[in-house]
Design a protein around this nucleic acid. Structure first.
Lengths: 241, 241
DNA sequence: TTTTATCTGTTGGTTAGCGCACTTAAAGAG
DNA sequence: CTCTTTAAGTGCGCTAACCAACAGATAAAA
């Protein structure tokens, strides 16, 4: 399920929470880093599944998804190289009612639950980093809550595109409209409509699951303030943009 | 602004996070408990305000509210005697982009930031309790996000009533429709309509800011699954319902 | 009691997004 | 090079919720 990889220096510089660790903590954890490749659509953890690893995405991006009884879904948060997946591990809950699925295929580094919990208990920079990230994530989820209530599909789609674009280096996103709809908690047809509008405006282009961002300022002009609020708070809490 | 009170034994049994502390930690913190009374509508902390205290509501209830540039608001979470207000204090962020306002007047116990941080650093049951609560709150906010996206005003109103009812002992809520609308992130007129329907059905009665819950099972029949999901997770994480 | 402020009810017009059914078109498999 | 699968486009009726503008009605203040 998880493809093992050799550990190269490139892997290690990918995740901000790891790279901002002081040398001492970094060296202590280094032997426990397990580089893995995450495939598109892969479920990092299921609803109520006991967590075995904490994941630090480097080039991958992972969505936190809530699912209702009737199968309706919506994304509540999203983690890339700015964060981690599996915070329930150190918060003490061990499982969560949501699930995490890979949105953009790529690499990640993972740490065994036991290692995470031991290092966390020391109360040092590792703990501080994870807790500050937790607060950043809470901000993101909160803003998603209010955005879901107050803003249009188009605005939310733009926000989602910008969030994704921030977490990859290039302008191409592999993502079908169907999948975007499950993220936004809406219908595929609604996504078709707004994606068409953005394409007509020359902001993006897309075809059969391949989206290209042509004009990022155009997206920023359309998006609601929610994007900026979260971005600012991430920068404040985690010290990078 | 905050009315000081004498510390009675009754105050101390109010908040679950405090009462479930082992005797040792409880005794250590006891001298630092500051009972306060929170008035309806009082702002416990403003957007981006440096937090000085962590609040443990006993008979009061506090809403976490996000506000947009245009003044639109929506509640993302809610804390009563099952939780605390001001988690940014121990997560390390010190401030948050949202604000906390008193929804139901009542009492709380507060602890100075410094005391909280010192005890938190010890890594004992106090830290564990707060972190588990943090995860519970994340679940609540996440569920609010998806609920805002997928469910009707009526369902969200029922959920809000049940959440509030769970946190007070009686069946009366002091709450105007205007205020409820700001919580739900909708219009006052929409609240009027659904409140009218529930009153006609004999589930609640209300008049000028005084709501009485007449038939709780009736509410539970109308509410979406979000209510139960969060309640179950609170019970699992915090050990009470 | 009269006045004023607050809370609630109602109407009619408007729109975003849903649900469903169907078509078109490109990619991949054999 | 066909067949099948998957992705995307379209049209239409429908409903929840929006917006705006009032009209009671009750409570509090003068």
């Amino acid at each position: 399920m998880f493809m093992a990889k050799d550990l190269t220096s490139q892997d290690l510089v990918g995740n901000h929470l790891l790279t901002t660790l002081p040398p001492e903590e970094y060296q202590r954890l280094l032997p426990h880093f397990e580089p893995v490749t995450l495939a598109l659509g892969q479920v990092v953890y299921h609803t109520a599944q006991h967590l075995e690893y904490l994941y630090f995405p480097t080039t991958s991006m992972v969505s936190l998804l809530n699912t209702m009884e009737d199968g309706m879904t919506a994304e509540v948060g999203l983690a890339g190289n700015d964060g981690v997946v599996g915070i329930a591990l150190f918060l003490g809950g061990d499982t969560t009612p949501n699930q995490a699925i890979v949105q953009i295929a790529g690499d990640a580094i993972r740490l065994r639950a036991k290692i995470v919990q031991e290092e966390f208990k020391l109360g040092g920079p590792f703990q501080q980093g994870l807790l500050r990230y937790t607060q950043a994530l809470i901000t993101q989820i909160s803003q998603t809550a209010i955005c879901n209530r107050l803003h249009s599909v188009e605005q939310r789609f733009c926000r989602w595109l910008l969030l994704s674009h921030d977490r990859v280096k290039h302008d191409k996103l592999e993502m079908t409209q169907e999948l975007i709809a499950t993220m936004l908690g809406g219908r595929r047809e609604s996504v078709t409509v707004v994606a068409g509008r953005l394409q007509d405006a020359g902001v993006i282009s897309y075809a059969r699951g391949h989206i290209i961002i042509l004009n990022r300022p155009g997206l920023e002009a359309e998006v609601c303030e929610c994007y900026e609020v979260v971005k600012t708070e991430y920068a404040r809490l985690l010290g990078f943009s």
